[in-house]
Design a protein around this nucleic acid. Sequence first.
DNA 1: ACCTGAACACCGTTCAAGT
DNA 2: ACCTGAACACCGTTCAAGT
Lengths: 242, 242
Amino acid sequence: MSPQAEPGAGSKPKRSSGRRPSLTREEILAAALAIVDEGGLDALTMRAVADRLGVYPNAVHWHMGSRSGLIGAVSTKVFDEIRLPPQRDVPWPDWIRAMAREIRRVMRRHHHLAQVIGTQLVTTTGAMPFVERVLSVLTDAGFDDERLTVAYNSVIGFAIGWPALELSTEPTDQHSAWKDDFAAELAGLNPLLFPALTRAMPAVRNRAYLLRWDSGATEPLDTSFEFALDILVAGLGAQLPG
Amino acid sequence: MSPQAEPGAGSKPKRSSGRRPSLTREEILAAALAIVDEGGLDALTMRAVADRLGVYPNAVHWHMGSRSGLIGAVSTKVFDEIRLPPQRDVPWPDWIRAMAREIRRVMRRHHHLAQVIGTQLVTTTGAMPFVERVLSVLTDAGFDDERLTVAYNSVIGFAIGWPALELSTEPTDQHSAWKDDFAAELAGLNPLLFPALTRAMPAVRNRAYLLRWDSGATEPLDTSFEFALDILVAGLGAQLPG
DNA sequence: ACCTGAACACCGTTCAAGT
DNA sequence: ACCTGAACACCGTTCAAGT
């Protein structure tokens, strides 16, 4: 059950045959992405990347500078997978919806990186085509210079922040007993102290924030996301003059 | 400049005088909270907590089970600080606003824990009074059983997810040159390729998601948050019958 | 410039032993 | 039950040395 299943991991790097071509940054990021998708962020160690590439740890260190630098760099790869819908002749509410769904889709594909994207400053010009499109759509919708920034932040804050919370990771260790424990605690709440919660319990248990024990990675909150998206678009429209 | 400034850190635990009273879970969590507030999540090690309390690392381990268990436990302490506004005779939009501002306030107070709350499953019955109030307010507002869950998730998803993204932490290492580098990259973007972004640049540089290099912990996005809050309340109201 | 090979300081966790 | 004292396996990073 341990993440590192490879026999002989940690041993000396073994080249399969002859000289490998010079190590490249893209090669490192691809290996890192594979590791984090498989084993989570904790599994992404410099040594794991080095092992996978058949080099010494310092080879990775030389290219990436540090582990946190590696994590930051690999998190930007998620933005490369964003495929935005065409903008021409599409009403802005439809475009905003499609954009938010696409963000959520790529974050779900790399849900272990969602916590990095959601809580660590990501600075990459690779996201600029995406940013340009969002600003363009909001400008065309009628948000002028002052309100453009706040509208943009409202939209992006939702589009990234909401799925990041949805895709919260489960605790790494534990003996899986905590799930049953928490479920039992919820079932044992005093109905007199928590009347609204008790009434809603069948609908919310394991399906609502602060009341669930499974991650959105395995138990998606689809209808809630769509509802929140409706709220965003309707509320945004209400801010437009006219 | 190193986080551990204490001389003799890592040395044998030194009791100041006589026998300390038996170590308690609350005592450990208080020490852990102080450490993470001062030095960030990376500084929160079992040994740092042990050093601060004058015990051996295994004493902490015995009480908390694991480091990730410690992190999860200390993150729930943030919910203890939530002081919700009274509910009687307050229109639901006002209450939702006050609640969201309060969540953001306590997350800001412990902004290094925002990344835990925003991206790790937090299961604590200590948050149930808070949950009860939110469900109660939304029920009174007119959201029935089916729509109550999705409305609740929409609201909480915003109230926690948005500040979590705002409070994104800066990379730990680096030589602070990356800030200037990123600023220069933004300034050097081709205006023909990014017309909307170029036009908006004076307003958005370091003030908008994906375009900033300072965390919301030091550069708050106050007006954007209030704007997003307006959107949430207006959009939520539009979902009510009548 | 790019990487090997080895070392250092640190950390989470485990273990036997004490009380 | 609660903690000491020491050990183990692992990790990020550094360093000298090679090419």
